[in-house]
């Protein structure tokens, strides 16, 4: 039962990824315009054109070209960046940790703030505080991360400049790290000086990314909590002598959290999508910032690679959330 479910999900994931690869390929190759001309950096020589033609097999049919490209991708060969002349995969993997850390930090912030809002709103349901939380959530949801980023830059970069609003870390500290996962590494090595510098840079972009998701979590979790609070087993727990806080956290939360969890899965991919513009806004050296540079420089192999990696990330996250949902729901697990 469970194995079958997982297998089906894996298959659809594969189909989706295949579809993504086709769409990327088609967008870049079939749209009007000479692909070679588009791939050329300014000042290319005829020899360059020759080389590119051979490299991508442009003399063959579109279908053959696709399979050549796909074959490479499957083997981890995403081609060579036109701008830097380095393998795309290496470039992408070099930037991925920065984006992942930013996204995970934003997720944590969103869950903490959203969870706090939901629990507070449930605890104080029917009061003006709950109304204020509702209104705040509605506002936070209406405004996209791009604007939240700008607002935070103004507030904490200009009006009250306590945070850095540019970059991932102070440049002179980069050589202190052995891996690309700066944040994790600083925590594991207990280098809180590095951690502090990272946080001063990352907190604002992460918060900008987190605000809409926090509002969604706050809204949905509060709604399911409030529905759960009316159920008989919650009432029964009250007669056992438990107070409101305990009842909310132990009896209601676990049952109310499932819809929120599914939603967080979908929303987390949206959040990662948001990193593209937020990284640009905060000059944060991640995948999204590199993608925009690649587009401006017309570095199409690099763009292809980044888009594929993002799609892979998205589908894998959806897969994980689906599995998590199955594990956390005892009825599904035993059903």
């Amino acid at each position: 039962m469970l194995a079958r479910r997982i297998l089906t999900r894996l298959l659809t994931t594969l189909v989706t990824l295949l579809g993504v690869s086709i769409v990327v390929f088609v967008v870049i190759r079939v749209v009007p315009g000479n692909p070679i001309a588009m791939m050329l950096p300014p000042g290319a020589t005829p020899a360059d054109i020759e080389r590119l033609n051979a490299l991508y097999g442009f003399d063959r049919s579109i279908l053959a070209q696709y399979f050549i490209w796909l074959g490479g991708v499957v083997q981890g060969d995403f081609g060579t960046s036109i701008q830097t002349r380095q393998p795309v995969l290496g470039l992408v993997l070099g930037r991925l940790p920065a984006t992942l850390e930013l996204a995970i930090m934003a997720l944590v912030i969103a869950v903490v703030i959203g969870g706090f809002l939901a629990l507070t709103g449930t605890r104080l349901r029917g009061t003006a505080t709950e109304g204020a939380i509702d209104v705040g959530n509605g506002m936070a949801l209406s405004v996209p991360v791009f604007l939240w980023g700008l607002v935070l830059i103004l507030l904490f970069g200009v009006l009250w400049p306590v945070f850095n609003i540019s970059g991932r870390i102070s440049p002179h500290l980069v050589q202190e790290f052995h891996t690309r996962f700066f944040l994790f590494e600083s925590v594991l090595r207990l280098r809180f000086d590095l951690w502090l510098d990272l946080m001063r840079h990352m907190l604002m972009p992460a918060l900008a990314l987190a605000i809409p998701l926090a509002a969604i979590i706050g809204q949905l979790l509060k709604q399911s909590l409030k529905e759960t609070m009316h159920l008989d087993y919650v009432t029964l727990a009250r007669t056992k002598g438990y107070g409101e806080n305990h009842v909310i956290v132990r009896e209601a939360l676990r049952n109310a959290i499932l819809p929120t969890l599914t939603l967080i899965g979908v929303q987390f991919t949206f959040l990662i999508g948001g990193t593209v513009i937020i990284e640009r806004l905060f000059s944060y050296e991640g995948l999204g910032n590199m993608a925009i540079d690649a587009v401006i420089n017309r570095d199409l192999p690099l763009i292809q690679g980044i888009v594929i990696i993002f799609a892979l990330l998205f589908t894998v996250i959806n897969l994980i959330v689906d599995m998590l949902y199955t594990v956390l729901n005892p009825r599904l697990r035993h059903g």
Partner: peptide, 23 residues
């Protein structure tokens, strides 16, 4: 539905920028 699934796997801003680069 499959198309929607595929579309959901793209970061929208990146997708838009890519399209502009091509168009």
């Amino acid at each position: 539905s499959r198309l929607i699934d595929i579309w959901m796997a793209f970061p929208p801003v990146l997708f838009a920028i890519l399209l502009i680069a091509v168009l």
